[in-house]
Structures are given as C-alpha cells and as structure tokens.
Amino acid sequence: MLDIQSKKVDNAVIINIKGDVDLYSSPQIRKVLLELIQKESPAIFVDLQEVNYMDSSGVATLVEALQRAKKYGGRLFIYHLQGAVQDVFELSRLDKVFQIYPDETEAMKAYHDEN
C-alpha cells in the first residue's frame, strides 16, 4: 500500500506519496484527491519524489483530479517526477497537460506568481 501524507500550507495542500502507484494503490490516491476536490481546495501540490513507478491507472487518477479541479478554478501541480514516472507521462503525451515542476519551491513560486 501507499504511504500518503498531506499538509496544509496557507490555502494550498501538499500531498506526499511514497510507493508504487498501480492498479492496487491508485484508488488510495484517488480518494485523497477527490476529498480535497470536493472541498474545492484552491491548490493541490502532489510530490512524487518517492514514487518510483506509476502505471496508467495512476496517470488517469491525476488526469481526473486535474479536470475536476479545473471545473471550480482549482489548480493541480505535480513535481519531483522520477525517471520511470517522468517516462510514463511522456509516453502518455500528458507531460504538456499538467503543470510539472522540478521541485516544491518552483511549483509554489508558479502558484504565487499566478495569484
């Protein structure tokens, strides 16, 4: 199973995920993200530094979260993509759809610059 930690920073929520994201574990992330989206969190930051593997169900979960957040003007930022995870975004050609940043500082900067 995944280890998912979340913390609130101002009006943003940072989610740290640790483990492989696959058919078995992606429902865990989906539950966390959809709860935040239901509360209309303005900004959700997803740290993937400790995710070494992600399959299409993980990518689909993030796509769903992105689309749902956009409906109320929410933002989803992802960062710290590791090699195999970066590859799956590129193979899916979704690397241009998401706001992907190298680290939390850059992601936060982008968010604050927008506001």
Partner: peptide, 10 residues
C-alpha cells in the same frame, strides 16, 4: 484528455 484508455496506448 480524459482518464482511462491509456494502457493499450502505452
């Protein structure tokens, strides 16, 4: 751009 249907593509 939608969730799902990616597996076969990959």
């Amino acid at each position: 751009i939608r969730p799902g249907g990616l597996g076969v593509h990959l």
